[in-house]
């Protein structure tokens, strides 16, 4: 996969490294000369020095051959224009933009950016969901936030202890994908019973997330 990343700082450096480890080709556009030379020394990426909102620079970076373009500069307006140029002038199918103003997530997608993500939004929802319950030890979202993966530890006051999954009547659109019991993973079946201190790997949707957690832990989120 050929990817183009526009921006600077640690985020670009680590994104590029993560992409290399997946075997992707990476091109980076950065508008600071010193940073370009540093990136060129540190990474095996193609580095292009210039302003990526200039169509000529995008052409120099061979944007027309990219499978995906990521715009992660600190300026929302630049990220929007980069993604739109990539899509409309160079026919890139997949464009991703970082947005600072969470309201711009929707605006960008409406204006043709494939995926817009707001760190403000991600961090605030992580904090919201994490502080909800002590028993929740890990959570991340997949499919652009449409699916949540959560790890829940069953405490001794959980209302679902000693019940099998069959009798559980878990709310719709939720799944206990895996149980970690004494550090051993169990892929549960209908007859599997839940024990205290079981760590459940739970798949939910944002709409029923709170409801399912309440169901399993007994406490209000």
């Amino acid at each position: 996969m050929d990817t183009l990343i526009v921006g600077g700082g640690k985020i670009v450096y680590f994104l590029a490294k993560a992409f290399f480890s997946k075997g992707y080709n990476v091109t980076i556009i950065n508008r600071k000369k010193e940073e370009c030379s540093r990136l060129a020394r540190q990474l095996k990426a193609t580095i292009v020095f210039g302003n990526a909102t200039d169509p000529q620079i995008l052409k120099d970076a061979q944007t027309y051959s990219m499978d995906a373009v990521l715009a992660v500069t600190p300026n929302d307006e630049d990220n929007l224009v980069i993604c739109q140029l990539a899509k409309l002038n160079f026919g890139v199918k997949r464009t991703l933009a970082l947005v600072n103003d969470p309201d711009n997530e929707q605006v960008f997608q409406h204006l043709g950016v494939t995926t817009a993500f707001s760190t403000t939004h991600i961090i605030s929802s992580l904090i919201e969901q994490r502080t909800g319950l002590e028993e929740i030890v890990g959570l991340f979202s997949v499919a652009e936030g449409k699916v949540n993966v959560t790890e829940v530890i069953l405490s001794d006051d959980s209302p679902v202890l000693d019940k099998s999954l069959m009798e559980l009547e878990l709310p719709n659109d939720a799944l206990i994908a895996c149980i970690l019991r004494d550090d051993k993973p169990i892929i549960p079946r209908g007859v599997t019973k839940l024990n205290v201190k079981d760590r459940l790997l739970l798949i939910t949707m944002p709409e029923n997330h709170g409801q399912v957690l309440k169901f399993l832990t007994g406490s209000e989120v």
């Binding site: 605006v107 409406h110 204006l111």
Partner: peptide, 14 residues
Amino acid sequence: ENVNIMAAQIAKNR
């Protein structure tokens, strides 16, 4: 100009 272009698109499309 990118600020202008972005604000204009929000005005027009949204």
